[in-house]
Design a protein around this nucleic acid. Sequence first.
DNA 1: TTGTAGGCGTTATCAT
DNA 2: ATGATAACGCCTACAA
Lengths: 324, 324
Amino acid sequence: MSEIARLTGVSQPTVSRVLNGNTSVNPEIAKKVMACVEEHNYQPNMIARSLNGSRTYLLAAIVPDIANPFFADLIKVIEQEAAKAGYSILIFNSDRDTRREERYLGLLQQYRVDGVLAAPVHAYGESIKPFFSLPIPWMVLTNRVENANSVYVSHRKAGKLVAEHLQQIGVDKYIFIGERRDQKFVGFEEGLRMKGVDTHEDLLVFWEQDREKMLELLTGYLTELPGRAGIFALNDMEALPVMNALLAAGIGIPSKAALVGFDNTFVSRKVIPSMTTVRQPLEEMGRYAIQEILKQISRKECGTFRYKEFEAELIVRASSDGEA
Amino acid sequence: MSEIARLTGVSQPTVSRVLNGNTSVNPEIAKKVMACVEEHNYQPNMIARSLNGSRTYLLAAIVPDIANPFFADLIKVIEQEAAKAGYSILIFNSDRDTRREERYLGLLQQYRVDGVLAAPVHAYGESIKPFFSLPIPWMVLTNRVENANSVYVSHRKAGKLVAEHLQQIGVDKYIFIGERRDQKFVGFEEGLRMKGVDTHEDLLVFWEQDREKMLELLTGYLTELPGRAGIFALNDMEALPVMNALLAAGIGIPSKAALVGFDNTFVSRKVIPSMTTVRQPLEEMGRYAIQEILKQISRKECGTFRYKEFEAELIVRASSDGEA
DNA sequence: TTGTAGGCGTTATCAT
DNA sequence: ATGATAACGCCTACAA
């Protein structure tokens, strides 16, 4: 920068003023300076700017697994929204390891990031709670954590949504692929009961360590079943082998079994028949998270918190479309 | 830091020395300082450290699409390897937009990153060529770019690999799903010819804008076909609907049609029957890229370049296993 | 409108 | 072994 100043015969602060454009400068000088900047392809040093000023224009994003398409999609949105506001993203993959999570929490402080977007390893964010008191704007993504800004959708409500859909298209047996403690299951069961389904009789859970065996049991059951089944899998990725096993066993989708996934990943879009799924409004969530963080940054407030729940959306596709 | 110095009654540079541990300090003082650092959870300011020193411990990663599982996997590896070496990753998603790519190239210079890992939007990296002359260690990922450090696998060789595999298990017709100009196709054709296959007669390409129509044509063709087909799709994601369409049409996999994908994404692992695919050695590539960048950083050399080709690996799974 | 001076939090160089 | 001092590149007063 002083180099530019020297070359154009002005003082270094003047160059600074030209580049930032907030104070008034002689237009001629400004033009000359800009020309010189262009010519030498000068790039201001954000590090120095950060050190002096109060902002780094850096946000940290911590996720349990970047390779998971759901988080990959989320990060894509986050990065895009941040870029619009002139922010860059430092990415930290905790790999579902709370020790790494903790290490990263130190690191992002060292880099003096202006804000943090975190999808904690543990659903209730125990591992990162001690850090909420730090003077950095925080935002917890994908689930509700007590005493922290949280952006999420209710998995319970989403489960209910699926229950209603399957009940509406008309099925004789309901099947959940996943764990009973999953909030999606809780909501699913609740929704079914509300519709008058005898969940003791007509709701089954399939979930085995050995997936091959699980699918065998499932296809066996469905083959024997005289009626139609409605299957809800905990996510698209797990719904995929189910779909293929059924197709291979000659069980028609959706005629003999309707199938619903979760997360609206490209898998659910690409697969044939295309798969009904539940979409979390990632774009809206990401946009909200970034805006809220930016607000906190500019107001220098980070003690307050609030919860923001978004609504899950059922996306009906071929795998559960039609009466039977 | 001067706060710590004040509290422990030593000078600020001494605290610095304790924290870095490169110069000798009185062990007692060191202990006292460390205790104070722990107590106040002091985190050194990387920004200041960067400004003064010559390193930021920041690497930039530019990819065309984070949401693409291949790049997501790659970034995961990169981040992991970088973390091991004390480096953090600034992530930039160019979204296959050369203008964004260009903007990011400016940004990463502003942040004075120590090195750049880039997967260019265009296969031959035209858009980023002007930047190779910058005094920053560079590494081009996933394809070979002239006059730049490049880490890649030969798609042509990979195509050949698939050709050999399908020829070996014995199929009557070869089908490629994708574009003819794809190097995978070039290698596929080449490999088949080398095995004595009449590629004019027995190699077909299916590729339509309208995927539904494409799949209809494909299943129609296969149903009529008396023999067995060997299908090679440009990637796992595109192989997925093919697999499902075949299953739904009652075309046995691999008995009636063997199917091979590309990239070894979780899709190929999850699907049933599990899908044969080609794996790029992401871990090795990522590790090599990071190590090479670090070498360049420490040697302050960034003019030299070299190409590093890795070998693709065929992963045979159920979708092409067995004689027929 | 412009230049001079100080400081952001480190590390490095010099004395001591 | 330790403390004072300068420097990194920028921005923000303040003075001219």
